[in-house]
Design a protein around this nucleic acid. Structure first.
Lengths: 159, 159
DNA sequence: CAAGATTGAGTAGTCAATCTTC
DNA sequence: GAAGATTGACTACTCAATCTTG
């Protein structure tokens, strides 16, 4: 007793909030991922890539841009794009203005996949998450996100 | 226009809250994981296992119980315990009353690791998360967690 | 030599199959 | 046969090394 300063630990409210936050994300993600995969054959990662590309002009995006939007490292983008290319969901082509660069392009098969997957996935997000929350709760979440993400140390430094 | 019912999509507030929630978790987890690993040599998963064991009587717990607490599948528990055993952080021993069962026990090395890692990790959780939030925001998080997790389909069914 | 991107090795997690004990 | 647990094969992510072009 007294060996540790109380400031070192979380009180009940803090711990409750922290555990709730983590558990909610993990369980929700697991359920959404399982349903999406079952109904569409896409993982949540596939879904993110296809949404980003389909919202981009020409259905294409530079690799580094895709990584920036998704918050992925460049090697993760490369590996994942390779796997999606093998499945015919996206394709790579060279950048005409920068010979180092690569574009990732959504294929017609990729378009079909995301078009058919999106309504069900959005419905699941509503059913299990946003549909259960009040507008006040939704606003608090966005506000928390802004505060927390804004205070995080810069992760892009000295890679 | 008009091809899709608006009820199929998320409005700005819903989408903002949803993206904020996901991004906050992912970025926070990445930063906390990197700092924990750097300062203690433990992953967040290692940390979870060691906290659970150290809070349990005798520093030991049945495998299935550990899986239940952490929300992990049994095979994940088994693989992870094997890796931690190789590093000397935990050990396995047989259950005297049920010959099928295994106990996972924290070793003295595991105790030292968690004792030295915990203050820094808790401080990081406070610095990057709970310390930035008001008591009202903390309460909303717990409330959201209760609603959302409570509404999730049962994942333990028909494994 | 920086930036853009790919590759390979090593580590983690999932799923199905298996083994033993209840 | 079901519960408790382990194993192996497969997929995914990370890190460091590499290659090419700016």
């Amino acid at each position: 007793v007294g060996a540790v300063d109380d400031a070192d630990w979380l009180d009940d409210r803090e711990q409750g909030a922290w555990r709730a936050f983590v558990q909610t994300y993990l369980q929700l993600n697991a359920v959404l991922g399982r349903e999406l995969l079952e109904e569409s054959g896409l993982s949540i990662q596939d879904y993110g890539v296809l949404v980003a590309l389909s919202e981009s002009p020409g259905g294409q995006m530079r690799s580094f841009e895709l990584g920036r939007v998704l918050g992925w490292e460049k090697s993760r983008v490369s590996h994942h794009v390779s796997r999606m290319t093998d499945r015919g969901l996206v394709a790579r082509h060279k950048c005409p203005t920068d010979q180092r660069g690569a574009f990732v392009v959504i294929t017609s098969r990729g378009r079909k996949a995301i078009t058919s997957a999106a309504p069900g996935h959005v419905a699941a997000v509503r059913r299990y998450f946003v549909g259960l929350l009040t507008t006040q709760e939704l606003d608090v979440l966005e506000q928390i996100g802004n505060k927390v993400v804004g205070a995080l140390p810069d992760t892009s430094a000295a890679e």
